[in-house]
């Protein structure tokens, strides 16, 4: 009975683990991408032709604010490069505003209040605080990643407990046979190996089934998330098959391939520990 139920239970848990794993990987990818935007949490623009002395005064005032980790002037060449896609080679000829990039110590609780304080420190400046919101998204993505890994640990612990219960049921059903093996001089390792080999095989099989079952769902989610990661959803171009292909290509394959092997290792280890602990009651 346990032999039939164990792979199914482990398959269900492997499916959850695969979802959690892919979720964590996806959140990490999104966080990494958005992190670039969050690096300059705030930009501040002064009108073109602002005298250098006023710019220096503004920089000094900004650097004195407790929230500001760094305030630096965006040099003209980099600004021209950024505008190149819109203005072409004419960018250097056009009067460009003075742009100050500001990195903050941490995310402000009230971005609007911060914007007002920055404007006060640099009168006449226009504050662009979109980076604060991006940084919040990064924090959210990081939290999702942590939740994904925590879920993974929880599922692994649950799987180990399920294996332990199944092995204990197996021990109870084979108590007499174990006593005979013990009496004939089998070591704890010999007896534990018999259970662990079987448990490892069954949990590995269950993990393989669960991971395989998760693939279509993961592919769909990966395809939906593609635009958030700077890619393109295959669905907009080629329908279901293209969408599935694009989604499958985006999956964290090394981690997913490792999942059945990790499942088997978890089952083997859990069975070894359970049997060896039980055998301690024998002399």
């Amino acid at each position: 009975m346990a032999d039939r139920l164990l792979p199914l239970l482990v398959a269900a848990m492997a499916l959850l683990a695969a979802l959690a794993l892919a979720g964590a990987e996806g959140a990490a990818a999104m966080a990494a991408r958005w992190q670039q935007g969050a690096a300059s949490a705030v930009t501040l623009q002064l009108p073109a032709g602002t005298p250098p002395a006023r710019v220096e005064a503004a920089l000094g005032a900004l650097r004195n604010l407790p929230e500001v980790a760094e305030a630096r002037l965006l040099d003209r060449a980099r600004l021209a490069a950024l505008l190149n896609p819109w203005l072409g080679e004419a960018a250097p000829e056009v009067p460009l505003p003075v742009v100050i990039e500001i990195a903050l110590h941490g995310l402000p609780a009230a971005p609007e209040t911060l914007a007002a304080r920055l404007e006060a420190a640099a009168p006449g400046a226009a504050v662009e605080a979109h980076g604060v919101w991006v940084a919040r998204l990064v924090a959210l993505a990081r939290s999702l990643q942590a939740v994904g890994f925590a879920t993974l640990v929880l599922v692994a612990a649950l799987a180990a407990a399920v294996v332990a219960v199944a092995v204990r049921a197996g021990i109870a059903a084979r108590r007499d046979a174990i006593a005979v093996l013990h009496e004939l001089g089998a070591t704890d390792g010999d007896i534990a190996h018999r259970f662990a080999a079987r448990a490892g095989w069954l949990t590995g099989l269950g993990a393989l089934l669960g991971t395989a079952a998760a693939l279509p769902v993961l592919a769909l989610l990966a395809d939906l998330a593609a635009p958030l990661l700077g890619g393109d959803s295959g669905g907009w171009r080629g329908g279901g098959v293209a969408r599935l292909r694009a989604g499958l290509a985006a999956l964290p394959w090394p981690a997913l391939v490792a999942l059945p092997a990790l499942g088997a290792a978890l089952g083997w280890t859990s069975a070894q520990v359970t049997v060896r602990l039980w055998l301690r009651r024998l002399p």
Binding site: H182, E183, L184, G185, A186, T187, D188, P283
Partner: peptide, 9 residues
């Protein structure tokens, strides 16, 4: 305890 299986044999 680990020495007992050898004796049991």
């Amino acid at each position: 305890r680990a020495a007992l299986p050898r004796l049991r044999r």
